[in-house]
Design a binder for these strands. Structure first.
Length: 238
DNA sequence: CTGTGATCATTA
DNA sequence: TAATGATCACAG
């Protein structure tokens, strides 16, 4: 079968949301093998040593420009790109990394000014086939969804962020686990478990601890994707 | 080391 | 088997 693809590498960032969506729509149904061929890169046999491969491949086609800067992927139009591995039921297979968590200098920082809120204020979700039993080259790209948090979702994120931030400020960072929070969680984000960064200790002193990052829990991401498909949960009452 | 892109793999 | 804690590659 000749799968016709209009996918092309982006030469510049999209100037508008509409242009970004148009590019994303050209990728629907494309396999990673096709995209890798166009991009001139090899398809890894496993993600084990190529964990960000799919995300960075899609950045090439969409024209993301921020590189490794702590910014949205498309600062010109205020959009963050997230690829999300899913199964055939469109259920997320992984949590979603949001950003690194500052562990010092947080006094006086509000949710409104937080990096988490900035990154999540508008997100282009692109589901990808994340099934490990399928060879990577055969996995394909799903339907893009441009999302902004609903008031309820933002409230949930804000509540979690405030709970976690308060613990960090109070020197309780080491007592925060991935179970803290309903939508947002704090987890290690480092090369390995020996990496260290500064944080506030239980008595207000500076301590060295494992760097952490903010992640979205699967259940929260699943809700976003389901609503994007128009699949609201059944209402028991109308 | 920090921050980007995340997924892996051991544990509960 | 799902979720938590650990890890991989690369740019700067």
């Amino acid at each position: 079968m000749n799968k016709q693809s209009a996918a092309t590498l982006a030469s510049a960032p999209p100037a508008t949301e509409k242009e970004l969506l148009a590019r994303a729509e050209q990728l629907i149904g494309c396999s990673f093998q096709q995209l890798a061929d166009i991009a001139g890169v090899a398809v890894p046999s496993s993600m084990r040593h190529a964990k960000g491969w799919a995300g960075q491949l899609l950045e090439l086609f969409l024209g993301a420009s921020a590189g490794s800067r702590a910014e949205q992927d498309f600062p010109e139009i205020g959009v963050e790109l997230k690829t999300i591995p899913v199964n055939l039921q469109a259920m997320p297979l992984e949590t979603t990394y949001v950003c690194i968590a500052p562990l010092t200098g947080l006094t006086g920082v509000s949710w409104e000014q937080s990096n988490v809120r900035n990154k999540l204020s508008k997100v282009l979700w692109i589901p990808i086939d994340g099934r490990r039993e399928v060879p990577i080259g055969e996995r394909s790209v799903g339907l893009p969804l441009l999302w902004q948090p609903s008031p309820t979702q933002e409230q949930m994120l804000k509540q979690d962020w405030e709970e976690i931030t308060e613990a960090i400020v109070l020197g309780q960072v080491e007592s925060i686990t991935a179970r803290t929070g309903m939508a947002l969680q704090l987890r290690p984000k480092a090369a390995n478990s020996k990496a260290l960064t500064s944080a506030i200790g239980p008595h207000g002193e500076l301590i060295q601890t494992l760097p952490r990052g903010y992640y979205l829990k699967k259940q929260f991401t699943q809700q976003i994707l389901a609503e994007g498909l128009g699949l609201e949960l059944p209402q028991s009452q109308k």
